[in-house]
């Protein structure tokens, strides 16, 4: 089957086209366009306008690139939530129009579950992982337990990406600040003690953010602050992931989200898995960030397991919980 997926929960609008090959996901094309506000954070309505401007062209481009005809598409999938209302509505409207025009079934999917399934679908050996999902707004530890995907831990305040971006912006860096902080951190040597806040398997970052800003104001080097922020936040992320692995008794860890590009974070999580004799997986960069291919793949899995969705049922859900998804495509 060929599935076309539309992602648009936040900054990025993505169109992915995939085909299933013996239970694995073959990505035929995966195009992403990202809205980056000139300054300040994301404005939901502006992001939605951005998506609306590009969506039609991006779809035709993707189909052309893939060298298929529109009639070859068997199913239209889209990100139903969680996400920003205006963005989700834009995407859902486009998906409905396309499904009706092609007279093909529609499938709304959960964005967070898609991040996990794309790892399983594209990486050999990745079968039942604990996912550490670290993006701008999201920071969650997700795993399959008692018949559902469940959130074992998450941020109690801001997402790790937003935390890095906030710190970076306060020091005059350009968005996205994560990569710049990573670069500076390499030069940092002195560890500045920062609050390390874990509650159960949840994490909080805001206290650390304030403390780091104060260090720099008091004259500490920016590179030392960047180094210390990374070491502290990533150690906490690795720790909650390890706790979820221990508690669920699983032996695989999967990374996902934009912050997964960070080499130091990868190294830490990898070291942790090695010490526990667990496997470590990261999808390719374009499948780590928000993308259409993962939406297309999850839409296929759901359809293939017998799930059907009417146009009426395709309403968006800004607060679509991970554990609301009925997972009947796994045994």
């Amino acid at each position: 089957m060929i599935s076309l997926g539309i992602e648009g929960t936040a900054h990025s609008i993505g169109i992915g086209i995939i085909q299933d090959v013996k239970g694995k996901c073959n990505v035929l094309s995966n195009n992403i366009k990202t809205y980056s506000p000139e300054k300040g954070g994301i404005h939901p309505r502006e992001a939605a306008n951005h998506h609306a401007n590009y969506i039609a062209d991006l779809i035709s481009e993707s189909v052309k690139k893939t060298q298929i005809d529109f009639s070859d598409i068997d199913i239209v999938s889209f990100s139903q939530g969680p996400g920003l209302g205006p963005c989700l509505r834009t995407v859902a409207t486009a998906a409905r129009a396309l499904a009706l025009a092609l007279d093909k079934p529609i499938m709304g999917v959960n964005h967070c579950v898609a991040h996990l399934e794309i790892g399983k679908g594209t990486i050999d050996g990745c079968k039942d992982p604990v996912l550490l999902y670290v993006s701008g707004a999201n920071t969650q530890v997700i795993a399959f337990a008692e018949g559902k995907y469940r959130v074992f831990g998450e941020t109690l305040d801001v997402g790790i990406g937003n935390c890095l971006d906030k710190f970076g912006r306060s020091k005059g860096m350009e968005f996205p600040c994560g990569p710049k902080i990573e670069k500076l951190a390499k030069k940092g040597k002195k560890y500045l003690k920062l609050p390390y806040s874990i509650k159960g398997m949840d994490i909080a970052f805001s206290g650390l953010l304030t403390a780091a800003e104060q260090y720099v104001q008091k004259g500490e080097k920016l590179e030392d602050a960047c180094f210390s922020i990374q070491e502290t936040t990533f150690a906490a992320l690795t720790e909650v992931t390890e706790r979820a692995v221990a508690h669920t008794e699983k032996n695989e860890v999967l990374l996902g989200g934009g912050v997964a590009s960070n080499k130091r974070l990868r190294d830490m999580v990898k070291t942790m898995t090695q010490e526990r004799d667990a496997s470590f997986f990261v999808p390719s960069q374009d499948l780590c960030i928000d993308n259409g291919a993962m939406i297309a793949w999850l839409g296929f899995l759901m359809y293939n397991s017998g799930i059907r969705m009417s146009i009426e049922e395709s309403v968006i859900d800004q607060r679509f919980r991970t554990d609301m998804v009925d997972v009947n495509w796994r045994e």
């Binding site: 337990a145 008692e146 469940r150 074992f152 109690l156 509650k199 159960g200 398997m201 949840d202 554990d323």
Partner: peptide, 28 residues
């Protein structure tokens, strides 16, 4: 992972951890 703290917020977070634990291990 504990602490001495009198804030309502912190007590709420403490109970929230248990709520999540029930959801993931005793969901039935």
């Amino acid at each position: 992972l504990g602490s001495k703290n009198g804030e309502i917020e912190t007590k709420g977070v403490d109970l929230h951890v248990l709520m999540e634990a029930f959801e993931s291990t005793h969901s039935q």
